[in-house]
Design a protein around this nucleic acid. Structure first.
Lengths: 129, 129
DNA sequence: GTAGACCGTAGGCACATGCATACGATTCAA
DNA sequence: TTGAATCGTATGCATGTGCCTACGGTCTAC
């Protein structure tokens, strides 16, 4: 049941992401960067459950488009610190708003009082990390 | 967030399925057969969101192990009707019980009153199909 | 009677993913 | 100082998946 639900949610997100011209992993990476302080690539990969090697082209593209910054860390020359640009923040907010709206429509079939609970449980599970 | 949750749930299910010696798709197929009347392979594939061609070896294995039946439909000689055997039912029930228990443990971090609501919303979304 | 659609089956192709390896550069601990 | 670990980067391998094609057999509609 959960697998099927997950697939539906992903299928729902795909056209939204395409409209905004970004991939799912790009969106997830932006979300990860927004959630916390400036991060190393390894930390971001770990935080969003991505393979660090597969994340490279994603980050390359985001950087190329001016959505993230990627700067050497003076405290550790092996590391590149990632940050979001204002343009990145703006795009991310727009995508998230659209996705939220679509999720709301999907949840319309559920009782209204259950929705907040559903989201609360999702959050709790997510925090449990 | 949902993608991550889905991955966690799948990661949780994997050892349980391995303990019982069946694959995820086998379990999903058994669930699909249990949910409804005897089905054609095409209908089952559609119902569980599987690729019909990829389902063939799964069904082959289930049949070999005596967990499902697969019989010609006298009304349409192209078709093979699938059914569950008692052994299949038994295995499926055991796996499901274990998965439910593990899900309960996972949900333990959420407020108790929210759990029923969470499951209710999941069901509603699933019925929405 | 015929053409098109469907069933189950087998296999191919392109792509994504998890995991691994390897590298140069850097850092850290002994 | 040295060896091991880590970072980011690039690539390979095995596997899984979505989609497709093709086939023989069967069914349906005209």
């Amino acid at each position: 049941m959960v697998v099927r639900l997950g697939r539906r949610l992903i299928a729902m997100e795909e056209p939204i992401l395409a409209d905004h011209g970004i991939s799912m992993w790009a969106y997830v990476a932006l979300s990860g960067l927004e959630d916390g302080p400036t991060r190393t690539q390894a930390a971001l990969a770990s935080a969003i459950g991505a393979d660090k090697t597969r994340l490279i082209p994603v980050l390359d593209d985001l950087q190329r488009r001016g959505l993230i910054t990627r700067e050497a860390d003076p405290a550790d020359r092996r590391v590149r610190l990632l940050g979001m640009t204002p343009a990145g923040r703006k795009l991310h907010a727009a995508v998230r708003a659209d996705i939220r709206a679509a999720e709301e429509a999907l949840l319309a079939s559920a009782a209204e009082k259950d929705r907040a609970a559903f989201l609360a449980v999702l959050e709790a599970l997510d925090q449990g990390r």
